[in-house]
């Protein structure tokens, strides 16, 4: 762990360092991933990762946290998430108890007391900012949240500080390494994108995917893994509703191991294709176009 010009500690020394250390924890990164992770770390900017489901966006955050021995703080976005779930809220029930317990006490003292740290419930964003240890903050599926939450993220990710009216402004002592993911179901606002480095994480090339399969499912033979990746590549070329991604490739490899198959003949493919293609229409289409029937 080194430090940059402003004295902030950084996680990585070089792009190769990123590649090596992510590799150690089992995440095989492409040049694109390693370069952007390195830059996000060096420049202290959040990294926005966009791409289809199942290519390892969330996994990347986990791997970075593990490789750098940092704590992972995760904010899962969903429809209707608000400040109280993302940032902080006051523990009202506890505050009430406190007030009732101190009947007859001076009001000023009580007021100062109930709006103190003890009654603050920190949610992921505030937690990440207040942590003193190295932290990886993962904002997952940002596109699922409503537009108003983006405004909140802007404020937090811009300066890494949060203002709680009763407590004052809390500034991050350690800027967390921030990773936002998005499935691009809707376009995020221009303002948010401008604050981030952008990485489009796509399906890996055949060579990298073979290595991923080999590292995740080592029981699968090399020849079979190669065959598997070839077929996946062809399936991605078809016009399917949901193209198979890396997680499906790995699932398929595990299935083949579990079934004890050592060759990928027509019958094996026919039996296990459901692991890869999750829509019935896709299955039908792939079978007919690839003459599986």
């Amino acid at each position: 762990m080194g430090s940059d010009a402003t004295g902030r500690t950084t996680f990585f020394d070089s792009v190769d360092d990123v590649l090596a250390r992510l590799g150690e924890v089992g995440y095989l990164a492409s040049t694109a991933v390693a370069t952007t992770v390195f830059l996000a770390d060096r420049l202290g900017k959040p990294l926005l990762v966009e791409g289809p489901a199942g290519v390892g966006k969330t996994e990347l955050a986990r791997a970075v946290a593990e490789a750098t021995h940092a704590g992972l703080v995760r904010l899962q976005c969903y429809e209707g998430i608000d400040e109280a779930r993302a940032l902080y809220e006051w523990n009202h029930a506890k505050q009430l108890l406190r007030i009732q317990a101190s009947q007859g006490q001076d009001w000023d003292a009580t007021r100062d007391d109930v709006f103190s740290e003890e009654f603050l419930l920190t949610r992921p964003l505030l937690t990440a900012i207040r942590r003193d240890e190295p932290t990886v903050l993962l904002v997952d599926e940002t596109d699922k949240a409503d537009v108003e939450v983006e405004g909140l993220l802007l404020e937090v990710l811009g300066d890494f500080q949060v203002t709680v009216p009763e407590l004052g402004t809390i500034t991050a002592t350690q800027r967390p390494f921030t990773l936002l993911t998005s499935n691009a179901t809707r376009e995020l606002s221009e303002a948010l994108k401008r604050r981030c480095l952008f990485l489009h994480l796509d399906f890996p090339d055949a060579e990298l995917e073979r290595r991923i399969v080999a590292s995740r499912v080592p029981q699968l033979g090399e020849a079979l893994a190669e065959e598997l990746v070839r077929i996946i590549g062809v399936l991605r070329g078809l016009d399917l509703r949901k193209a198979p991604s890396v997680s499906e490739t790995i699932d398929w490899a595990r299935t083949l191991v579990a079934l004890g198959l050592d060759t990928l003949d027509d019958d094996a493919v026919r039996r296990s294709l459901g692991v890869v293609l999750k829509h019935r229409a896709d299955l039908v289409k792939a079978s007919s176009e690839l003459r599986l029937n």
Binding site: V15, L39, R42, A184, F198, L199, D202
Partner: peptide, 23 residues
Amino acid sequence: AEIDLLRREQLREGLAAALLRRS
């Protein structure tokens, strides 16, 4: 300034990360 300019692929990915906003 951060990247090794002799590594062309890294330069390409780095510039893409900074300059592009949609896939």
